[in-house]
Every structure is written in structure tokens, then in C-alpha cells.
Simulated scan of single mutants.
Amino acid sequence: MSTTIAKPRSSRSSTADAEPRRRRKMKSPYPTWFFLPAGVFYIILFFVPTVASLWFSLTRWTLFSVEFIGFDNYVRFFQEPPLVQGFINTFIYAFVTSGAKVVLGLLFGVLLSSQIIGRGFTRSVIFFPVLASTIGVGIMFKVLLDPFDGPVNAFLESIGIPGPGWWTDPATALLTVAMVDIWKGVGLATLIFIAGMVAIPQEYYEAAKVDGANGRATFWNITLPLLQPATATVVLLSLIGGLRSFDLIWAITKGGPGFTSDVLASVVYKQYQAGFFGLSTAGNVVLFVVVAAIIFPLSWWLNRRSVES
């Protein structure tokens, strides 16, 4: 009677068989229908309004009638000088505010990550404007910077400096609102940079100290490269907020004087007020395209740099 001895399966084959089974088990930790509510909300609250906006931007519509006119609204949008001015102001405002928030946030982050007296109090003071209402901040600065009765100009005149027409002068209105926006938003940028600096391992700084690197060399060769993820976050958030800004501008200047401080969002709102619904819808589509065309490539580039660094 012969006996057949079964050969044991090799550990390599058993491991190979176990991997597909493990991969199948880990493929979907939740049932697919768990994602159904989020998909429904996405379709109702984002996809359907986006498609509807694209359609209504090609029409002359009211609450009771719709007339298809093709791309006439877009042609008119870029032919009207006030609308073109708002388009240009959007880029000026966004790049000024985001650039200043990145630079000032980085400086404050470095300062408030060091051992200084009153560090906790200073952090609270810088971050407090982020918590304040945007409309409330706008009204407050509109009163403070009033060219005639404002306390800022009264103080400047008391020391012999003629106060400017902060939000009434076409040359300074947009930059005045940008300055207020920077004051309100730099606290969030500072907080993100502080979080990024705290996450940097101290071993790098200790090694640099052993090698004899000074503070400037340490900042440029260790701190700044390792802050790439935080920098990318601040740049993207600040730029998105600047491109979509409306409430602060409306609270202080309402786009004035004239159209000198208008941005795309305030232009769109004014067109809705005037009853040009199709034109204002086209402006909304233009704003959406502008934000997407800038943010998505920039996000890809910044995230790629963060991974490489």
C-alpha cells in the first residue's frame, strides 16, 4: 500500500494567495450605498445649480420668461467698462491680499514660535480679528477711516498730516479694503504657519546648530523648505478668499466711489439688483471659471513642490 505525502505549500505561494484576499477585503471598508446621501446632496446642491447657471447665462431671463441669446451676455460682460474694471480689480485685490497674508503670516509665525515675552497674548491679539464678523469689521473700519469725522484722520491732522480719503478716493478705495482684509485674515495665516513650524522635528535644528549654521541659514535651509505644505495651504486659502471676496467690500465701499473698488462678486450683485439676471449669471460663471482656472493648476503645482521637498 503506497502512501502519498502531500507537499506543503510554500510560504511564498500562501502569501501570494493571502494578498489578493486581503486586497479584496480592504477594497471597500463601507458599503457603496453609504456614499449615496453625499452623492445626492452633491448633485442637488452643486451639480444641478452649476448646470442651470451655465444654461441661464446663455439666456435673457426673468422670473416669468426665458429667451435664449447664446453668448451675448458674455460679449456684453467684457464690453461694459465697469464690468471689465471689476474683473481687473478682482485680480489686483486677490494677489495683494494673498501675497501680504503669506509674507506677514510667515513673519508673525516665526516670531511667535520663538521664546518671546507675552507670546500667548500676542498670538491671541493677532488671531482675534479672524473670529470677528466680516460685516462688523467692515462697518467698524468705515467709521474709523471716515475722511471727515473718522478718528484716524483726526489723529493724523493733530500731528500735522493731512488725512487721505481712505474709501472715498478712487485711488485708495480698493487698497483700503485690501488693507482691512489683510488685518482680518493674517491671524489665520499665522496660525497655519505656527502649526507647520511646530511639526518640524527639532533634530534638524540641533544638527544645524552642531554644524555651526546661524539663524538665517537655518531659516532658509530648514524652516522655509519644510514649511512648503503650510505655505501651499495659506496661498490657496488666501487666493480663493480674495477672488471670491464680496462682504467686506460691500460693507465698506459698496464698490464705490463709482466702480473703482468693484470686484466680480460685487459687480454680479449689482447686476442682479438692476434686473439683468442673465448678465449677472454670466458673471457668476466667469467668476467660477476664473477661480477654477487659477486654483486647480496652482494647487497641483504647490502640492507637487511640497511632495518633492
Rank of each mutant, 00 (worst) to 15 (best):
Ser11Val: 08
Ser13Ile: 09
Ile194Ala: 00
Pro201Cys: 05
Gln202Pro: 14
Ile240Gly: 12
Gly39Asn: 13
Gly256Val: 02
Leu248Glu: 02
Ser238Ala: 15
Asp211Ala: 11
Leu188Met: 08
Phe276Glu: 08
Gly120Cys: 08
Val289Asn: 05
Ala213Lys: 10
Val198Gln: 04
Leu83Gly: 01
Arg9Val: 15
Thr218Arg: 12
Leu188Glu: 01
Pro147Tyr: 02
Ile200His: 04
Leu279Ile: 09
Gly105Arg: 01
Asp181Lys: 11
Phe91Met: 13
Gly99Trp: 07
Phe87Asp: 00
Ile249Gly: 00
Gly138Glu: 03
Gln85Ser: 12
Leu111Pro: 07
Met26Leu: 14
Ile222Asn: 01
Arg12Asn: 11
Leu287Phe: 01
Ser261Ile: 06
Tyr269Leu: 04
Phe68Glu: 14
Val177Thr: 07
Lys101Asn: 15
Lys25Cys: 12
Val235His: 14
Leu239Gln: 03
Ile192Trp: 00
Trp33Thr: 10
Ala189Arg: 02
Ile5His: 13
Ser306Glu: 00
Phe128Ser: 12
Trp55Glu: 13
Gln85Leu: 08
Asp146Trp: 01
Phe128Asp: 10
Met197Ala: 04
Thr3Lys: 09
Glu19Ala: 14
Ala207Arg: 07
Ala265Thr: 01
Gly70Val: 11
Val125Trp: 06
Arg216His: 13
Gly150Thr: 05
Leu236Thr: 14
Phe141Lys: 00
Asp247Cys: 04
Asp169Gly: 11
Leu191Trp: 03
Ser2Pro: 15
Gly109Ala: 03
Lys142Gln: 12
Leu175Val: 15
Leu111Gly: 06
Glu19Phe: 12
Leu45Asn: 15
Gly136Pro: 15
Phe64Ala: 14
Leu54Asn: 14
Ser10Ala: 13
Ser2Ile: 15
Ala171Ser: 13
Leu58Arg: 10
Glu157Met: 05
Val285His: 02
Ser53Tyr: 03
Gly275Thr: 04
Trp300Thr: 15
Ser113Leu: 03
Lys7Pro: 15
Pro151Met: 04
Tyr42Met: 07
Phe64Asn: 08
Phe108Gln: 01
Ser114Cys: 09
Ala173Ile: 08
Leu156Asn: 02
Trp250Asn: 05
Gly256Pro: 01
Met197Ser: 11
Val307Glu: 13
Gln85His: 10
Ala274Ser: 11
